[in-house]
Each structure stands twice: as structure tokens, then as C-alpha cells.
């Protein structure tokens, strides 16, 4: 069970959280102006990262807030958690921490 550091509550066991998939994919401001392919890319295409992955989590059985975590998918080590709206540190998706 992962130990996840909620930016609002502190470290809590994974059982209190729900994973929300890849982070930093903003919903297009005007979906109707997108082509079918562009919209399908937003809907369905996600990175299948080996290495550092920026992902959303929700402290569902706690404060209820969404936040982001940078997790190494090969080790499950969470390098950092940060609030919605903040940017990840310089490391790019897939980098080895």
C-alpha cells in the first residue's frame, strides 16, 4: 500500500485515495472547434510511461481534494505531490528520477 502525501492533510495510506489518471491534460476550452481526431486524442490518448509519471489523485476518503503526484512507475516511489494548478518540477514525463 502506497504512502501518499496529500498536500492538504499529510501522509496517508493509499486506501484513502483514488487515482485519477494522467495529470496536466486540460479540457479544451472550445471542444466544438476541434477536429474528430483532435478530440479523440484528448479523450483517449494517454502516455504509457515507464519512469516518472505525473498523475492525479483524489483524497476521496479524506479531504476530498484532487492533487497531483509525480510517481516512478517502475518503483512506485512518489517523488513529489503538489496542488492542482501547480506545475511539476522540471523533470519531464518518463524521465528516470
Amino acid at each position: 500500500m502506497l504512502l501518499i502525501n496529500c498536500p492538504y492533510c499529510g501522509p496517508r495510506p493509499e486506501a484513502e485515495f483514488v487515482n485519477g489518471g494522467q495529470a496536466h491534460i486540460a479540457r479544451p476550452a472550445d471542444p466544438m472547434s476541434l477536429t474528430d481526431d483532435e478530440w479523440a486524442a484528448y479523450l483517449y490518448m494517454r502516455d504509457n510511461t515507464k519512469g516518472l509519471h505525473h498523475e492525479r489523485w483524489r483524497h476521496a476518503n479524506g479531504c476530498g481534494r484532487f492533487f497531483n503526484a509525480s510517481r516512478d512507475t517502475t518503483t512506485d516511489i512518489i517523488k513529489r505531490t503538489y496542488r492542482m494548478g501547480e506545475r511539476p518540477e522540471a523533470e519531464h514525463q518518463g524521465a528516470k528520477p
Partner: peptide
């Protein structure tokens, strides 16, 4: 409720 919270917190704060 979870989906509503998702959009409210992450897309339309």
C-alpha cells in the same frame, strides 16, 4: 459526485 468534484476542482475552479 466524484465526477462533479473532478470537473469543479480541476477544470473550473
Amino acid at each position: 459526485l466524484s465526477m462533479m468534484e473532478d470537473y469543479l476542482q480541476t477544470e473550473w475552479p
